[in-house]
């Protein structure tokens, strides 16, 4: 699917940035089944989403907003795992370009 690779690259970079802020035991893997919702605290979620928005804009020239994810239950939403969040970023990049 288009934008799968760019979304994945942005996700890996955002997780790397977030890991720089986290203590070693709390750092995240970039594996698709890595759980995000319920594992990251509020600040971690905010930092991850803001990093993703910025990286997508810098690298792909596309503006996507992810702030609506702060309003839903992260354990069941697109924030649940790395794979689901990556898919959402991909879909929003595609929608923004179309």
């Amino acid at each position: 699917m288009p934008y799968t690779e760019p979304a994945l690259r942005a996700m890996h970079k955002a997780i790397a940035e977030l890991n720089d802020l986290l203590p070693a035991p709390e750092r995240l893997s970039t594996a698709g089944d890595t759980v995000l919702g319920g594992r990251l605290d509020s600040l971690g979620v905010v930092n991850l989403l803001l990093a993703l928005e910025r990286i997508v804009e810098e690298n792909e020239g596309v503006t996507v907003s992810l702030m609506d994810l702060l309003e839903v239950d992260p354990t069941t939403s697109a924030l649940a795992t790395v794979e689901r969040l990556t898919a959402l970023v991909r879909d929003r990049m595609q929608a923004a370009r179309s």
Partner: peptide
């Protein structure tokens, strides 16, 4: 329920 804390602040 801390994972949903942000919804209260949005």
């Amino acid at each position: 329920y801390r994972a949903q804390a942000m919804s209260l602040a949005m």
